[in-house]
């Protein structure tokens, strides 16, 4: 069939030119080799893979029906989870704003502060919440304080980075106008910078609160408080129906969180 087509048409139509094709093949080849290496080298016992669907469905079967007998304890732990996320988000604001101020190129007092700010943001963002939690549990012992600090440490980077970008994106012209009135730096910030970044600030904090709710559901797995503690306990004791209840309540919590954030976003911004 290909032969016939070739004989019929003398003009050859090709989608990509030679160089593009070479790049495409090279990228494809590199990807295939990478995947081949990953599949061959990875430490997986393959018969288990073929058995995995069975195992997963049997776990699912053991979970059904969800057991609501510990609902009261679960709801309490859920509230604790929400408290951790909310308190941590509130506290983060006080840390993140100064950091974003010194990490934004147009407001930073000097280069040393700029690099200090950037260093804080990068180190905060590169370490995952649960790793922060691991560290704080080791220091302060299991409990909600470790959880709050872990969420804070991760959120500072998030809120600080986005606020820093918001500050860098402001309209320069009102700043110039305020300088022309003879206002000091603090006044220029209060009048020309703060009003401009207000909407971004609310959006970022609300967004991070939503994320923090999800993050705080896992803190308990390393002992840092919240619903994760009960989840870990139920899994350890093979109380699968309780696990199912917890999972369902997490879905409910996350959906409620999303509803609240979208409501806030509409009302405030």
């Amino acid at each position: 069939m290909v032969d016939r087509a070739g004989a019929l048409a003398e003009r050859v139509w090709q989608r990509y030119d030679r160089r593009e094709r070479l790049i495409r093949y090279a990228v494809l080849l590199a990807t295939m080799m990478l995947v081949y290496w990953a599949v061959r080298d990875i430490d997986i016992f393959w018969p288990w893979v073929w058995d995995a669907p069975n195992q997963i469905s049997s776990l699912g079967a053991r979970m059904w029906p969800p057991d609501p007998s510990r609902l009261a304890a679960i709801v309490n732990a859920m509230l604790e989870t929400v408290h951790i996320a909310t308190l941590a988000t509130l506290l983060t604001i006080f840390v993140a704003l100064p950091v974003s101020y010194i990490a934004a190129q147009n407001t930073t007092p000097n280069r040393a502060c700029l690099w200090l700010g950037r260093f804080i943001l990068v180190s905060s963002r590169s370490v995952n919440t649960i790793i922060w939690a691991l560290l704080f549990v080791a220091i302060f012992g299991p409990g909600v304080l470790a959880g709050i600090l872990a969420i804070m440490c991760r959120s500072v980077g998030f809120i600080g980075k986005l606020m820093g970008e918001a500050i860098e994106e402001i309209d320069r012209r009102p700043v110039e106008a305020m300088q022309a009135t003879g206002a000091s730096k603090a006044k220029v910030i209060a009048y020309a910078v703060v009003p401009q970044v207000m909407p971004a600030f609310f959006a970022i904090v609300i967004l991070r609160w939503d994320i923090n709710i999800r993050e705080s559901t896992v803190l308990g797995l390393v002992g840092a408080g919240g619903i994760g503690v009960i989840l870990q306990g139920s899994i350890d004791t093979f109380a699968w129906p309780t696990v199912a209840t917890i999972l369902l309540s997490i879905i409910v919590l996350v959906l409620i969180g999303e509803a609240i954030t979208s409501l806030l976003r509409r009302r405030v911004i």
Binding site: I42, D43, I44, F45, W48, V49, D51, A52, Q55, I56, S58, L59, I130, R214, E215, T217, V218, L221, G228, L231, Q232, I235, V243, L247, I250, I251, V254, L255
Partner: peptide
């Protein structure tokens, strides 16, 4: 559903179902 759960929670369930390891 897959967005509601933090990957660590999903991981703990899969570990329970298919055992420890990269799978």
């Amino acid at each position: 559903i897959s967005r509601s759960f933090h990957p660590v929670i999903v991981a703990i369930l899969f570990v329970a179902a298919v055992g420890f390891g990269p799978l």
